[in-house]
């Protein structure tokens, strides 16, 4: 036990590489999370309003975005997606290495996932509220921004939490092909150099990170939920 503890506090992988790795993971998750909400929320709204009988029903747009784009992206395993996106990433950020580059494939993988969650959240808003918004003379844009999204907010926040937790998992994988971060650290030291204490520390930090995200997410949901 003592030996294990000594390994832990003297191992440079932990004393020196751990904090930068955590920083890289947070950067990947933070960037990708932000971009996912930025692109995924509008996409989810469009999926919802263009569905048959929706606020702006449009079969073509709905099938193209939902049936084709979202479903195809979601059916590609992340490991394959991130590798095949390397040329695209290089074109966008100029490099395929580092946490910023990794955020590109992370975002592309999680936008369709989040958009579907958004669509489901909006579907849970009672249609009578949309009727009420219309009867009072709201435009379609006002119905979305002033009624649908605020009414779905608790569920949207919960969806963001779920997405960020999923991103933490994917970011470990992204680390392997140049993203860096905790995943890379665990792989290099824990797996390749067989230092189980590094593996353990990374595991504990990841678990704590997920718990923290879930805790904060749940607290925000309670705050915005007046139902």
């Amino acid at each position: 036990m003592n030996d294990f503890w000594n390994d832990l506090v003297s191992n440079p992988a932990i004393t020196e590489a751990l904090w930068p790795a955590l920083g890289e993971t947070l950067q990947m998750v933070g960037l990708a999370g932000l971009a996912t909400v930025l692109f995924g929320l509008p996409l989810g709204v469009v999926l919802f309003v263009t569905q048959p009988g929706g606020l702006a029903a449009n079969r073509t747009v709905n099938v193209l975005l939902g049936g084709v784009l979202v479903n195809i992206t979601r059916s590609i395993p992340y490991a394959i997606l991130m590798v095949s996106l390397i040329p695209f990433t290089r074109w966008i950020v100029g490099t395929s290495i580092g946490p910023i580059a990794a955020s590109v494939s992370l975002t592309i993988a999680s936008v369709p996932f989040f958009a579907r969650l958004v669509e489901t959240s909006l579907r849970e808003v009672h249609p009578g509220k949309v009727d009420a918004a219309h009867a009072m003379g709201s435009t379609r844009a006002q119905t979305v921004t002033k009624v649908l999204v605020p009414e779905a907010l608790p569920s949207l926040v919960a969806s963001i939490t779920t997405t960020v937790v999923a991103l933490i998992g994917y970011s470990a994988m992204a680390g392997l092909i140049g993203g860096g971060g905790l995943g890379r650290l665990a792989y290099n030291y824990g797996y390749q150099r067989f230092q189980p204490e590094v593996m353990l520390v990374v595991l504990v930090i990841l678990v704590a990170l997920v718990q923290l995200v879930q805790l904060v997410g749940d607290a925000v949901v309670r705050r915005v939920d007046h139902r």
Binding site: H126, G128, K129, D131, A132, A135, M136, G137, V147, P150, E151, L153, V224, H226, R227
Partner: peptide, 16 residues
Amino acid sequence: RRRLGLVFQQANLFDS
């Protein structure tokens, strides 16, 4: 539409 007020069976208030 503002000339016509609509009252619903379930009130349909905005919970937020």
